[in-house]
Design a protein around this nucleic acid. Structure first.
Lengths: 146, 146
DNA sequence: TTAAGTGCAAATTATTTGCAGTAAG
DNA sequence: CTTACTGCAAATAATTTGCACTTAA
């Protein structure tokens, strides 16, 4: 809570590097910057390409939007992120890669984790013949009452 | 099962008309054609704009793609359809408007209903303060094993 | 008659891609 | 060195929109 800036930055960098190399991805300057924003503080995050791009710029990083897109795709392919689709016009990327439920705030278009220990699925429809369940997406859409 | 074509068509037309007027929508030629394709036989359906457009053309109906989009949106706004988002690049529209689970076949990109009686959610994360749950989307993603 | 609905073509928006240059191993 | 990565600008693809025309009520 009271670590100084240098230490925090250093930790973020280390974590980002490990995260990338563990997945066999080259830790380039751009990827490190994006990775640090995603997992630098060990917190789970849900980002859109645009939001991450803005965050990077805000942090003084020089990364192109196309690279942000390509990088997010690369991270997904490497299993570092999961893509979650709640809004047909935008993709969200989650740093948590296990199967867990989400809240989607319809007014702000924000996606967050829902406490997974509060979800108990007793029975699930079984996969039809010749199929297996790749993932179960549970999105709880929240509305602020008028 | 063995009703003749004229009767089937007539039923479809009636059902489509009722469906539209019940929602306070003007039963125009285009809307009737699309509605008949959607609910004409009383079966539940999941369509994309493009698929519905092609189906209409195939049936000899003259409807523009923009109208298909506008119409689907109008049907949703009127509560006749529900939009389901499983794929960031395409919207699916479901003729069943109650909250129920779906199968999404990743190989064919097809969306179907999952038997809702086989899903039992024992406990759901509760909505954060000042919020209510608008809907719970459950999408079971199916993969055909290699 | 008149407000709602339609078609077309142009606009928008998120995302991808081709390719020439740059950097990591 | 050599192959992967990046940036830019152009290409895609789904969806929306402006506007003149048509049609249901």
């Amino acid at each position: 809570m009271s670590r100084d800036f240098a230490t925090q930055t250093h930790l973020a960098h280390t974590r980002a590097t490990d995260w990338l190399t563990a997945a066999g991805l080259r830790p380039t300057r751009q990827r490190l910057a994006l990775a640090a924003l995603l997992v630098g503080d060990g917190q789970d995050r849900h980002v859109t390409a645009e939001k991450l791009f803005v965050a990077a710029q805000h942090g003084g990083e020089k990364v192109s939007l196309a690279t942000v897109y390509n990088t997010l795709r690369a991270f997904c392919d490497a299993g570092l992120l999961t893509e979650i689709t709640v809004d047909a016009s935008r993709s969200y990327f989650d740093t948590r890669t296990d199967d867990h439920p989400h809240f989607f705030w319809e007014d702000t278009q924000v996606l967050t984790d829902a406490p997974s220990d509060q979800l108990e699925i007793l029975r699930l429809p079984e996969a039809p013949d010749g199929c297996e369940i790749a993932r179960v997406d549970v999105v709880i859409r929240l509305r602020r009452p008028a």
